[in-house]
Simulated scan of single mutants.
Amino acid sequence: MRVVLLGPPGAGKGTQAKGIAEKFNIPHISTGDLFRENLKNETPLGKKAKAYMDAGKLVPDELVIALVEDRIIREDCKDGYLLDGFPRTVAQASALCAFNEKIGKLLDYAVNIEVPEGLLVERIVGRRVCPKCGSSYHVTFNPPKVDGICDIDGEALIQRADDSEETVKTRLAVYHSESAPLVDFYHFKDKLINIDGNQSPRAVAADIETALKGGNQ
């Protein structure tokens, strides 16, 4: 099964991606992990990406696409994969579609997790993380036992710079301009599955599993 995971920042894609990959026994391919792997191993593609990053430039679409194509033709993807963080734009989605047609392995589904924007801001701005062990909390939905203190090692929790309200609103604006059109793209391709993300993570996971098994499209 070949799946791409869509949804705005704060929709819970990371949590759901892990569950989908385990349930359907397919590799979870995160573009962030893909970049880190290629940079660490100093692959030819990784070196090209590093040159852009060192210069403070965005890695161009064609290089991101090449990284993804190189990953999905590996042996562990022969029975499918879950892409998380790619495609981000319609141009990337079109390139992925063309490559899948070329290798004769078409995408099965695009799972889109829908969450009201006001809730997205609340979810992200309320995140707190332990700088020592990496444990995650939320001031409302998953608070630590002692306010502002990690349950595990007693470190003071922090709010990441990416989780400030101003940054979150900027990220959502970018999503709406660049990534939201993907919903229409995959709807037109008859690949789209919309999932109500305004539920508990367990309920969202159950809905995704049902849909991917053909029970609700």
Results as ranks from 00 to 15, higher is better:
205 A>T: 13
199 Q>N: 14
207 D>A: 14
68 V>K: 06
130 C>T: 06
197 G>P: 09
171 R>K: 13
171 R>V: 13
128 R>I: 05
20 I>H: 03
131 P>I: 00
205 A>N: 14
4 V>K: 03
42 E>A: 01
39 L>T: 07
93 A>R: 03
57 K>S: 08
2 R>Y: 09
214 G>Y: 15
155 E>A: 08
30 S>G: 12
57 K>E: 15
217 Q>P: 14
167 T>M: 14
100 N>E: 15
31 T>F: 11
35 F>Y: 15
120 L>S: 03
160 R>Y: 15
50 K>T: 02
20 I>Y: 01
69 E>A: 01
28 H>N: 13
160 R>T: 06
205 A>G: 13
201 P>G: 03
167 T>Y: 15
211 A>T: 13
208 I>F: 11
172 L>Q: 14
125 V>I: 07
130 C>N: 04
110 A>S: 03
115 V>L: 01
184 D>K: 09
118 G>D: 14
202 R>S: 13
185 F>Q: 13
29 I>D: 13
165 E>Y: 15
80 G>N: 06
103 I>P: 12
129 V>K: 08
31 T>A: 04
208 I>T: 04
213 K>S: 13
21 A>Y: 02
81 Y>K: 05
88 R>M: 02
37 E>H: 07
175 Y>Q: 10
9 P>L: 01
161 A>W: 11
146 V>C: 08
147 D>E: 15
161 A>N: 12
44 P>R: 00
14 G>Q: 05
49 A>I: 05
125 V>S: 05
213 K>L: 12
1 M>H: 07
2 R>T: 04
89 T>G: 02
199 Q>C: 08
6 L>Q: 03
155 E>W: 09
199 Q>T: 05
102 K>I: 03
174 V>W: 12
126 G>E: 10
91 A>Y: 10
159 Q>G: 07
66 A>D: 11
84 D>P: 12
42 E>C: 01
141 F>D: 08
145 K>C: 02
44 P>Y: 04
152 I>F: 10
160 R>I: 06
216 N>L: 12
19 G>Y: 11
151 D>S: 05
58 L>K: 09
200 S>T: 14
181 P>Q: 06
197 G>H: 10
127 R>S: 04
192 L>P: 14
20 I>A: 00
138 H>T: 05
28 H>V: 00
166 E>V: 05
64 V>R: 09
154 G>N: 07
214 G>H: 09
178 E>G: 02
196 D>A: 00
54 D>P: 13
30 S>Q: 12
133 C>D: 15
31 T>K: 08
217 Q>I: 10
208 I>V: 08
35 F>M: 06
6 L>P: 11
67 L>M: 15
127 R>N: 05
211 A>G: 12
200 S>L: 05
109 Y>W: 06
108 D>K: 04
136 S>A: 09
104 G>I: 06
201 P>A: 01
